[in-house]
């Protein structure tokens, strides 16, 4: 007759249903949700494209620059891109509100372009990607990072050597 006790307990303690569609929902802090991309920190190393298991991340060369494309509808939320990103340009948020009507399907993507600029040092055409500040001693200041963005790889190397930095 234990089930009667359980039934009465259930009746007295009330429903344990979360109020989600009508109220807020709880999300764990380390929930692996929607991918977020920060163009300003991307070094165009393309490691994320390399590790993305379902091929949700793609880099394309376009006349304007290097286009980063990420399809939320292909992403399997494994978190490898975040793990391998040297500059935290790709981060995984805890957002899971991704259900959408099919007419919004092609909007469920991140399209960002790392544009070509002319190098301020040698005037060659180069990508305005962020430098990789990890392990640079002494660390980059924000102004230096902005300067480095507009330098071609050869000029960056030169600038680093002139600064006496170890990387």
């Amino acid at each position: 007759m234990n089930f009667i006790k359980t039934l009465i307990q259930n009746l007295v303690s009330g429903p344990s249903t979360v109020s989600y569609p009508f109220g807020p929902a709880w999300t764990p802090d380390n929930f692996r949700g929607r991918i977020d991309f920060k163009l300003a920190s991307c070094t165009a190393c393309r490691a994320c494209e390399q590790v993305c298991a379902p091929g949700a991340i793609r880099f394309d060369k376009t006349p304007e620059g290097l286009r980063f494309m990420m399809w939320h509808n292909t992403c399997v939320f494994c978190g490898l891109c975040e793990h391998y990103c040297p500059t935290d340009a790709i981060r995984q948020t805890t957002d899971w509100h991704m259900a959408h009507p099919v007419k919004d399907e092609f909007g469920m993507a991140i399209r960002e372009t790392i544009v070509y600029v002319n190098c301020t040092g040698c005037n060659a055409k180069t990508l305005s990607s962020a430098p990789n500040p990890v392990g640079v001693e002494p660390p980059f200041t924000p102004e230096e990072i902005e300067q480095q963005r507009n330098l071609c790889p050869a000029c960056r190397k030169k600038a680093l050597a002139e600064r006496g930095a170890v990387s």
Binding site: L7, N10, L11, S13, G14, P15, S16, T17
Partner: peptide, 9 residues
């Protein structure tokens, strides 16, 4: 029945 199963119903 829902209440007995701790649901809203």
């Amino acid at each position: 029945a829902a209440r007995l199963q701790r649901r809203v119903g």
